[in-house]
Nucleic acid binder design. Structure first.
Length: 287
DNA sequence: GCGACAG
DNA sequence: ATCTTGTCGC
């Protein structure tokens, strides 16, 4: 049997995978028109100075404004079990998290956290189309904060995954400054790990701990950075929305206690933890 | 053509 | 992303 009559119980028409891919490309092109890749934010960036004082750098936005204080991190964890809900089960198979850190605190205190459990994913994971799978649940968490007028609403969002994907997607749709943080290289436009390694080693003694990633097409796709002394494996920083690559690098440097920037790391740890502790029933936080 | 491929 | 124990080291 190859599925004759499979659609009898579905209301939605069946659309081929290739049509979906095309639609995703078109949507990304539309979002790209609203994308801002330069500094355009209302806050100022604190710069630690050698004299012990704290100088303040102008944001590209409007001059003045509050210091950057609340930085958000988002992540989605998955259960080993059901990736798509086959059975009509209430077991959670995914957990989206939003955390907010006060970056003016030496310890980078977590001042807000929220989660959203999922019982099914209607969108599969496809490299380059991560946003279509993870953005909806994360947008919902942001919207919930905004709707309730929460005072900890982030001034900046760190998103796991490389830019020109989830970070841009979220940044544009939520209209929030965003930076993409990849823990692995996204193999596009000729980028390879060996190439990154070579460039990092070449710049090893120049005082800089990051390199710019340029694709074979000539486009600047982001930067690879060794965020910790001991780590030879870099993290990948890319533009999300309203923050330039240079500014993104400065910001990431100041919020890394470990290899992975703290907002991302906390969102990661806490979403995984929340999923484990609730892997049997309904969430209750959203209906 | 085949494999690799952010999370 | 997830499956997984201990282990070597600061």
């Amino acid at each position: 049997m190859d599925g004759i009559g499979e659609n009898h119980h579905q209301l939605k028409p069946k659309i081929s995978g290739e049509s979906m891919m095309l639609a995703c490309y078109l949507i990304q092109d539309l979002l790209k028109e609203r994308l801002i890749t330069q500094d355009d934010f209302p806050w100022r960036l604190p710069i630690p100075s050698s004299s012990g004082n704290v100088a303040v750098e102008e944001g590209g936005g409007g001059g003045g404004g509050a210091l950057l204080k609340y930085v958000g991190g988002v992540d989605v964890s998955y259960s080993k079990e059901l990736d798509s809900a086959e059975a009509a089960s209430t077991a959670a198979c995914g957990c989206g998290s939003l955390v907010v850190l006060d970056v003016t605190t030496p310890t980078l205190q977590v001042v807000y956290q929220d989660f959203s459990l999922l019982t099914n994913f209607d969108v599969p994971y496809i490299p380059s189309f991560l946003a279509f799978r993870e953005a909806p649940i994360l947008l919902q968490l942001l919207q919930k904060m905004k709707n309730t007028g929460n005072p900890f609403y982030p001034q900046l969002l760190l998103v796991d995954g490389n830019g020109f994907g989830l970070a841009c997607h979220l940044g544009v749709l939520a209209n929030i400054p965003a930076i993409g943080i990849g823990k692995n290289l996204h193999h596009v436009d000729g980028l390879t790990e060996s190439g990154v390694r070579q460039l990092l080693q070449a710049k090893d003694n120049s005082g800089e701990d990051f390199i710019t990633l340029t694709g074979s097409s000539g486009c600047v796709l982001g930067a690879a950075m060794r965020s910790t002394k001991g780590s030879c494996k870099p993290i990948y920083i890319s533009v999300g929305h309203r923050v330039s690559l240079n500014t993104a690098i400065k910001i990431v440097k100041m919020i890394c206690k470990y290899r992975v920037p703290e907002p991302i790391r906390q969102a990661d740890i806490r979403s995984r933890d929340h999923l484990q502790k609730n892997s049997g029933g309904n969430d209750g936080t959203l209906q």
